[in-house]
Amino acid sequence: MKKEIYWRFLLNTDKKNKAEKFSKNILETMPNAKIVILEPYWKDKSLFNLEVRHDLVNIIPDKVVFEVLETISLISNSWSIDLPINFNIEEFDFSGVAIDNLKWDYVSWTSFFLQDKDMPTTDVL
C-alpha cells in the first residue's frame, strides 16, 4: 500500500504573501508534496496554518519508515513520536510533533501523520 505523510505547520505570520513564501521554502525539502490548506489559523490569527500531503516513494514497510525518518530529520532533530500499541510492520501508521530545533524560525510548530495514501485526514492538532 502506498503511504503519504500528512503535514501541518503553524507559520509565524499573519500575512498571506509571507505564508506563501514560507510554504514554498518548506515544499522545497519535500519532493512529491502539495499544499492542501494555507489559511489563517482559527485559534490564533497571528499564525497561518499550512497543511501538506507528501507522497512517499517507497512501498516496502521498513524503507517507508526510513524515508519518513530521513524527511523529518530535515525539518527538526527533536520529535515526539506516537506509535500504535500493537505496532505491526505490515500495517502501520504513526505520527509526530516538533516544537523545538526546527529548521525554519518562521515555523512555531509542526506535526506529521504517516497514513495510507489519500486517506481522510486525522486531526493531529
Rank of each mutant, 00 (worst) to 15 (best):
N77V: 06
L50R: 02
F112I: 01
F87K: 00
L27C: 00
I89L: 13
V97D: 02
K34L: 14
T122M: 08
I99N: 02
D123A: 11
I37D: 07
I37R: 12
L38C: 05
Y106V: 01
K103I: 06
W109V: 03
N88A: 14
S46N: 14
L27I: 07
T13K: 04
Y106P: 00
K2N: 08
K3I: 07
K117Y: 03
S76D: 06
P40A: 04
M119T: 10
V57Q: 06
D93V: 15
L102H: 00
K117Q: 02
D82P: 10
L11F: 01
N86M: 14
N86Y: 13
P61M: 12
P84L: 02
N49H: 09
V107F: 01
N25I: 04
K103Q: 05
S23E: 04
L50G: 05
Q115D: 13
T110V: 14
F94Y: 12
I89W: 09
L11W: 00
D93E: 14
L27Q: 00
D62P: 07
L27D: 00
L47Y: 05
H54A: 00
F113A: 09
T71W: 07
T110S: 05
V124G: 09
Y41W: 12
F9Q: 00
N17G: 12
D55K: 13
F22R: 03
L38W: 01
D44C: 04
I89M: 12
E67G: 05
I99C: 07
S76G: 07
N49E: 12
D93M: 10
R8E: 08
K43N: 03
L83R: 06
N86D: 12
I26N: 02
S111R: 10
